[in-house]
Design a protein around this nucleic acid. Structure first.
Lengths: 363, 363
DNA sequence: CAATTGAGTGAGTCCGGTCTCACTCTACCA
DNA sequence: TGGTAGAGTGAGACCGGACTCACTCAATTG
């Protein structure tokens, strides 16, 4: 069972047909399971196919049918557990419906995303699931739509793209709730740290950011603070904190301010790890020295001391919904609203307490 | 920029050729960049292609060239950060070399793996990277090899497959080191918990398990214990602990034994989370009540109290090596040994201490 | 019993590219 | 200046399937 068999030209329907002594068209019908074939012939073809070790050529098939039975997924960073989990939701759903999944990782780089989109169009995927890296630069996405292939946006929506399906989480509402929770405990100096780059200009209230989910979080947090009458609410916003050293630097800078924040909200679990690591380096304790809330809920959040108050998002479900929606589109079944917004929940644990300075005394 | 453009038949080389007033072959040469074309023609074709919005059909191209520029990756569980990170190593490397990556998730189910292999063969991927679910049931893998497509095994090797490339970690050595470390601290009752199912028979020393990496870990641990003269060293091995409740049940069962283990080694980070969660439920403290070591090193391991002693594997590098090796094979450049074994390192932190019962007193 | 139906089959076209081959035309060389 | 090399081009075969169409032949029907 070694080398000799290898490198031989692929076995084709023609080969099978010859072996089974039927016409190529008949063998193709039998193998492809699409026409009318007698039992007798079916068996002969089956036997011949097995004897020869026939494997259908999916490329040739797709070229004729115009369908590849494949979904293209483009995400920013599969290493981020958020996308890992969403991806499982997508693949589980796709597999159940008989679709394969192609994945491309962009590192949140727009040009990589554009590249991936082109490649997937060339591969003639049946549909796209994309977590777009940019809110505004979406020509490649509109190209996809023009090519007639369904597109579902995951976790983020974009500007200037009509009628596109979006599966996302109500970030603004839950961010508002998180900030409100902190405010209720007496916090006014609330920081928010995200990996997202800001671009050239400093942030101004109301700015649209590059990623809608982050934008929504910022809006929710600022809205809660403004309602509570907090001045200069955006002064503790920090952008461009890439995982690893970037996060640590930002954390250090924040905590060494004359008026450091009394609470920090981390935009994802990767950032949270960096922040917590650096706080410990600085000898600061959560929640005594600073309260802490992170987006995403993974089991380690309950294992550390104190257990983290988190914003739990239905990540797997978002993946499932995106794939379900896309497949419905592909198969021409249009169902429900184009935009589905899943709720997220603030999960109270032990990382939030009243700020030290003010020293209110409630439970 | 909306509906009207969509749904139209794809633009082909023939269309471009007509528009540029050249022969189809010439347009194809220009577009495909493979023959000799004059500058004049090249420009006319380029202009025509852009005017018409031409996108090459990768399927048709692959059918002719026999190459798809695509790598098929089959892993057990992308939700597991281990594979997420390895996957990034793979995609980064593949992208740099101009290859796309198709991913299939099997949930460690053999039939899903067989299915995925078939689909990828049908898609005519140029090569495979597989983390095989079974050590012995590898007919589908040998089919892949017979089809003439390179195959690189990731993280695990298998029986009965000659000349297959393998990129793995020296699990036996590092497991031995971990067990030795525990033994040096005075432990004799050392548990090992893995997700891997055992099959029907209870474990006997020397048994080959379904996954080589786990097998190697068990062998390393038992070897250290046996050398140290520990009797009945396999009595605390626990298999089939699926993430979530399974792990917790196993942990509880272990710790409620008359002679519970004094140290636990978790086979991956998902299991570790479950074990630690359950230990806390049980009111047990690490390392006072039980010492703890886990395979894999993620930042949260340093954030929890106590910081975990871990076995750090070069996961990203393993992914890179697998992709590099595969691409070399695809391109006919055979380099170095078929089996590459990466070292893993025991990282000492705070989750290992002498067992309570014995009460030795060293640092 | 002639007419109708449709299951079963084969011949051949098509999908959208690549590639081979023959041919033209210019440039260079002895 | 005749010969040749090679760049540039077009016609058409080909990759491996799906699909259209024409045809056969047995079963059904009025």
């Amino acid at each position: 069972m070694n080398e000799p068999t290898a490198r031989r030209r692929d076995v084709t329907v023609a080969d099978v047909a010859r072996e089974a002594k039927v016409a190529k068209a008949t063998a193709a019908r039998s193998l492809g399971g699409y026409g009318a074939v007698s039992d007798d012939v079916r068996q002969r073809v089956q036997a011949a196919a097995e004897a020869l070790g026939y494997h259908a050529n999916g490329l040739a098939r797709s070229m004729n049918t115009g369908r590849s039975n494949t979904i293209g997924v483009i995400v920013g960073d599969i290493e981020n557990p958020y996308f890992g989990l969403a991806m499982r939701g997508i693949t589980d759903t796709a597999k159940a419906a008989g679709y394969d999944v192609i994945l491309a990782n962009t590192g949140e780089q727009l040009d990589a995303e554009i590249d991936a989109a082109r490649v997937f169009v060339e591969k003639r995927v049946d549909g796209f699931i994309v977590a777009p890296a940019s809110f505004t630069l979406t020509d490649h996405l509109s190209d996809i739509m023009h090519s007639g292939r369904p597109l579902v946006l995951l976790d983020r929506h974009v500007a200037n793209l009509d009628d596109v399906d979006v599966i996302e989480v109500d970030n603004e509402k839950v961010a508002h709730a998180a900030a409100q929770h902190l405010i209720d405990r007496g916090h006014e100096r609330i920081a928010f740290i995200t990996t997202l780059e800001l671009g050239s200009n400093p942030y101004q209230a109301g700015d649209e950011l590059g990623v809608s989910s982050v934008s929504a979080r910022v809006n929710g947090i600022l809205a809660a603070m403004n309602t509570a009458g907090v001045d200069n609410s955006e002064r503790y916003l920090r952008f461009g904190a890439n995982s690893g050293s970037g996060v640590k630097g930002v954390t250090r800078e924040l905590m060494q301010l004359e008026e450091p924040p009394t609470a920090i909200i981390a935009s994802d679990s990767l950032i949270a790890m960096g922040v917590l690591g650096e706080l410990r380096e600085l000898g600061l304790t959560v929640p005594d020295d600073v309260s802490f809330i992170m987006f995403d809920d993974f089991e380690w959040a309950t294992l550390i001391s104190p257990a983290l108050t988190v914003i739990a998002q239905p990540v797997y479900e978002v993946g499932v919904a995106a794939a379900t929606r896309l497949i419905a589109r592909i198969e021409g079944r249009v169902t429900g609203e184009p935009i589905q917004v899943f709720p997220a929940a603030l999960v109270h644990r032990k990382s939030v307490a009243p700020p030290r300075v003010v020293g209110r005394d409630d439970a």
